[in-house]
Nucleic acid binder design. Structure first.
Lengths: 217, 217
DNA sequence: CCTAAAGTGGGACGAGCGTACCGCTTAATG
DNA sequence: CATTAAGCGGTACGCTCGTCCCACTTTAGG
């Protein structure tokens, strides 16, 4: 994430998400856990609002209502903070998508198309932050795993939808649909053209027709 | 690109790509034009190698073999430099894609699929920089126009390929193929999975089949 | 209760950033 | 040839950044 070499070892405090070693020692204090989460939340929010550059120690600390040093205390570095924020963002995103997918009852192709096409239209700033981090994973091996987890999670969700709607849902079909959705998603988030929704619906309908035939479940 | 307010008017020198006003005054000196281009080249290269954060005045100047002040002299601000670099990158990218598309002779679906699937596999760092800038356009209205120009340029190229290969090439079909390609492209650039090429070929073949029928030109 | 460790917060440090300044050089115009 | 402005480059300013330091308070195990 940053190419600068570290200057010195961090002082001996909690690091990288795990508040305490699994055995021995004291339990983490409640407030410490709350603060850790508050910082992560703040980082995720800032990432969405202002992008990568907006996530500074000072901004995160201020947003979480904590002193500056708290960010260094709970995270070994800015990179670690960003990495954890990315993981959290992905986790939440997948959970939200899963939830809205499970709420579906209609199984008509149009309904499925509409559902998938609108699946990502939650919160534009957050999406931008998510994609920014995803792209960063192309440069930073530490983020690769999270990026793939996102892709795989989307695949799994799409597979579930396809299966429940009676479409073929092997790997090629799922990948085909997911990739198309990614393209639509990104284009919509970045360019925000007004006609995007209608075109997305059309594209998804085409994709579903392409992987058909559909059989009643 | 940056949310910071400007501090003062720039001093009265050349600004933003146009070396001189259209009428009156002197001709730009040859070296000035060369320097302008050298800075832009350097910025584009740095953007590809190290991403957004790597494009600093100092890095650009050093790379171009020019003194630090040259960057401020030829570009009104870092944002202006980045914007012009984005435009240049898009222009080159489109030209390269166009060139490799025009070199095609085979019209079999497989050949088309392979061609499209490999169209973006030129230079991974550059692609990363390009996508980074594209994403930034979601936040910066000044970049929106360039982002759309890229999308539209891709559409046009794909439309040409489809037409020459005898596929339907109306707007919905073209958008469908382009969007899928974007998804494949980004996924490949970021995740760099080894099996990507084969899957891309499969996906493109599906997309072509979906928009068919193909008629001999 | 005592004490060692964890938690806390204010401040400081050094580096890198974008940008402005200003005196010098170069080249085109009259 | 003189003059005027563009071109140029070294340097400095003001700022924000990530990180570290260190004295202080709280907590919990013995």
């Amino acid at each position: 994430m940053s190419e600068l070499p570290p200057r010195a070892l961090p002082s001996g405090h909690l690091q990288a998400g795990r508040i305490r070693p699994a055995s021995g020692g004291r339990r983490p204090q409640q407030r410490a856990v709350r603060r850790h989460e508050a910082l992560l939340d703040a980082a995720a929010a800032l990432l969405g609002e202002g992008g990568f550059a907006a996530v500074t120690h000072r901004a995160v600390a201020q947003r979480a209502g904590l002193p500056l040093a708290a960010t260094s205390y709970y995270f070994s570095s800015r990179d670690a903070l960003l990495t954890e924020a990315f993981a959290l963002l992905v986790e939440r995103e997948l959970a939200q998508m899963r939830a809205s997918m499970e709420a579906i009852t209609a199984v008509s192709p149009d309904a499925i198309a509409d559902l998938l096409a609108g699946a990502y239209a939650f919160d534009r700033p957050r999406q931008l932050g998510l994609w920014e981090l995803y792209l960063q994973a192309g440069r930073d091996p530490a983020l690769q795993g999270i990026a793939r987890a996102w892709t795989d999670g989307c695949d799994e969700i799409v597979a579930t939808v396809l299966r429940r709607a009676g479409y073929p849902h092997g790997q090629p079909e799922v990948r085909f649909v997911t990739t198309l959705l990614s393209g639509l998603w990104l284009e919509d988030v970045v360019e925000a053209r007004p006609e995007a929704r209608g075109r997305a619906r059309d594209a998804v309908a085409r994709a579903l027709a392409a992987i058909g035939p559909r059989v009643e479940p």
